[in-house]
């Protein structure tokens, strides 16, 4: 099989994931896009391992590791997103703007802060 096929597929998949990471507003969707990017890397690893016929199977072993790390990453990432949601009442990346230089977002932050207590209460109800 032509090596270009998996390689190009991996490259395109990676770029799709990249677009998702950069363009999605919801944090959970961002994490999903990250998964896409990781899978693109996995595909590359497997394809090159198969091509090279490595005696140690390093490509596939690393793929397994990546999958594991990805699982850990999605767990932690979702925990962080949940925390942000609980504190801010939203999972929108656009509205998490504490890094802003200046006070344009100050109002939004305050609103978010005021919404925080409401979110907390409701979350408690859910929990």
């Amino acid at each position: 099989m032509h090596l270009v096929f998996p390689a190009v597929l991996a490259a395109l998949l990676f770029c799709v994931g990249l677009y998702g990471v950069l363009a999605r507003r919801n944090a959970v969707l961002m994490l999903m896009s990250v998964e896409l990017m990781l899978n693109a890397v996995n595909l590359n690893l497997v394809a090159f391992d198969v091509w090279l016929r490595d005696a140690l199977h390093s490509g596939q072993a690393l793929t397994l590791f990546t999958i594991t790390v990805a699982a850990a990453e999605i767990g932690l990432g979702l925990a962080i997103v949940l925390l942000i949601f609980r504190n801010r009442g939203t999972a929108d990346i656009d509205r998490v703007g504490r890094l802003t230089d200046g006070d344009e977002k100050a109002d939004g932050d305050e609103k978010a802060d005021s919404a925080e207590t409401v979110g907390d209460d409701e979350m408690e109800g859910v929990g």
């Binding site: 990249l18 990471v21 950069l22 363009a23 990346i93 656009d94 998490v96 703007g97 504490r98 890094l99 802003t100 230089d101 200046g102 344009e104 977002k105």
Partner: peptide, 17 residues
């Protein structure tokens, strides 16, 4: 230059990429 510092993580990430 300050306008670039808009606090949008995705914007930073886009510039990085």
């Amino acid at each position: 230059v300050r306008r670039a510092q808009n606090g949008n993580t995705q914007g930073y990430l886009s510039a990085l990429a």
